[in-house]
Amino acid sequence: MSLGESATPLGKVRGIGSAGDGGGHWLSERVSSIALLLLGTWLVASLLLLPNLDHGTLRAWLSEPSGAIPMALLVITAFYHGVDGMKVVVDDYVDDAGNNFAVNTLLLFLGVGGAALALFALAKTAFGGEA
């Protein structure tokens, strides 16, 4: 290193940490996990409390705001949390900076694309009117 003896202890270590901005990501995982705890409980409880799981029952359930809105929040939060979590796995195992960027970008696109597909389907059910 060219820092020499003049560098302070902090100056010598600054910037050589693993990521630099991990704190925000860490907190983001926790907040989305708390949201998923609520939304996941809602989904399991809803599936158990519905009279049956026929197409018409589910369609009616997701046509009401009480079903469609939590489901939309669940889709968004679950995909967000999934991409967040996969980034931790990729950062652990894919060291090369170029490959790391490529894999994380691919997973981000897959996550956003999957969430868009699920939300479009949900919107179609919610706003579709009578079949």
Binding site: H55, G56, L58, R59, L62, M71, V75, A78, F79, G82, V83, G85, M86, V89, G114, L117, A118, F120, A121, L122, K124, T125, G128, A131
Partner: peptide, 24 residues
């Protein structure tokens, strides 16, 4: 389980919602 839920779980959730939207 996080990896399994992210790939298989979200794929199943999406398929389920698409199937409901597509019809009986």
């Amino acid at each position: 389980t996080g990896i399994a839920l992210t790939f298989a779980g979200l794929a199943l959730l999406t398929w389920w919602l698409v199937a409901i939207a597509e019809g009986p």
